[in-house]
Amino acid sequence: MEEAKEHSKHAHGYGIYVLVWLALVTLTGLTAAVAGINFGKLSIVVAIIIAVIKSYLVLTEFMHLKTEQRTFKAFIFVALFFIIISLALLFSDYSFYVR
């Protein structure tokens, strides 16, 4: 069957996992260390950027998204698109609200 062919088996390597894990732990240490420094408003941005990088690593490597079907990547895009747009619309109220 065609479906069976689609499911080519990707045996994932141990090595890459350990590397990813090392990167994740390093980033965690980095974000905790950086938290002590006061960047002012930027500190939120820095922390969020590091969190995004970490979750990107988990998604692509641990969750195998890198080798997964294109449909799944499109799904992620749909979910993220919705979250970002909704947040923007929500803040179209709150950030312009005059108390």
Binding site: A47, I48, V58, F62
Partner: peptide, 23 residues
């Protein structure tokens, strides 16, 4: 099951800075 576990991890990756780090 692994996918689920990793998602739980990803959520924590965001909860951690939001509650512990950003001051």
């Amino acid at each position: 099951a692994g996918l689920y576990w990793h998602l739980v991890d990803i959520i924590w990756i965001f909860l951690f800075p939001l509650f512990y780090l950003i001051t």
